[in-house]
Write a protein that binds this DNA or RNA. Sequence first.
DNA 1: GCCTGTGAATGATTTCACAGCA
DNA 2: TGCTGTGAAATCATTCACAGGC
Lengths: 205, 205
Amino acid sequence: MAGQIPDIVVLRLPLYVRALEHLAREKVELVSSQELGGHVQLTAAQIRKDLSYFGKFGKQGKGYGVAHLLLGLRRILGLDREWPMVLIGVGRLGRAILGYEGFAAQGFKIVAAFDTDPKKTGKKAGSLVVRPFDEIESYTRERRISIGIIAVPAKEAQYVVDRLVKAGVRAILNYAPIAARVPKKVKQREIDPVAELESMTYYLK
Amino acid sequence: MAGQIPDIVVLRLPLYVRALEHLAREKVELVSSQELGGHVQLTAAQIRKDLSYFGKFGKQGKGYGVAHLLLGLRRILGLDREWPMVLIGVGRLGRAILGYEGFAAQGFKIVAAFDTDPKKTGKKAGSLVVRPFDEIESYTRERRISIGIIAVPAKEAQYVVDRLVKAGVRAILNYAPIAARVPKKVKQREIDPVAELESMTYYLK
DNA sequence: GCCTGTGAATGATTTCACAGCA
DNA sequence: TGCTGTGAAATCATTCACAGGC
């Protein structure tokens, strides 16, 4: 029960949501911090502490009501609504992202795709018509879109990020292998499978 | 200069490698911790401290030799060799992973693809013939493969992970949205774009 | 003078341990 | 009794600040 919540705690909440969704599908109604910890590979104490930042969700002697906690966490994370997103970059990677079904199930939806390449704009990618990148500001501002997905080559990423930030986007999911500079108020997460592999090979000896 | 290196430090090394590769391409020969920090969004002190775990790479008064540090880090991470990998799951996601060009540039290569679905096995996916999942142990053991990529649905992921571990795999890149249980000696990293999005929406209010 | 390498200091995160409630 | 919620303690990570080499 506090004012300022550590980022690292927020980062873990989606894991709890996933595990709770799984438990809910299995018709489990109550779960202890111990059991939940088993699902997400964390200690019971850490889970209790994390949740305590947001209030009291548990029942002493019983555990946490799965449905109740799930609802609470989803609300805290803002998952009780739809999030429209824009995608920039409609190459091979961008197309794969457009085809990924995992977003929709959690309320995330790519509503427009942009590219700088005039050979691509005006044509279809998935169910969307690719728009010229220069329309990005007007499009996102008009529709108040706050999330952008970047699927352009590394060397274009910083430029695209800057334009997105100017366009009012406040959260960026970056598939380019580079940590772009963003103002503090803008959140950025990187998806970089190669970096993940590289940090594992260290241990393979 | 220490014995046991914190995981979190190892996790940052690939970022340094990326930035140094960029600098090398730009023909930069020397870089200070300050400048490098600008590229990876970290403080100069942190970079110096991180590097100091592995030895003395810098020249006082000058900075770090880009080529020298890059070579050193690549060796430390085991990137001075090729890493064959197996892929499990040849659905939509698995095919996208097979088509991803980013692995090869860093010496990672998917050498075999497996699936449990008999409708898929024996047919081509990219340039590989899909193998029956039951061949996984014999294949990976014979070729001493230590890295596996998982692209199966969440509910199959734990089973696949268990089989991979039995087959001697020691590093797993997991695209299934679930933290599978692995023995301590096995490293696992998850690629979960939806979880990344969910931890950003918290701040979008 | 400039910049590294590194102990010491600070700050953040995790774990402990237990009071208190159902 | 069983399990939460939470201060206090312990651990871990980052930043500071400066001695020392080029």
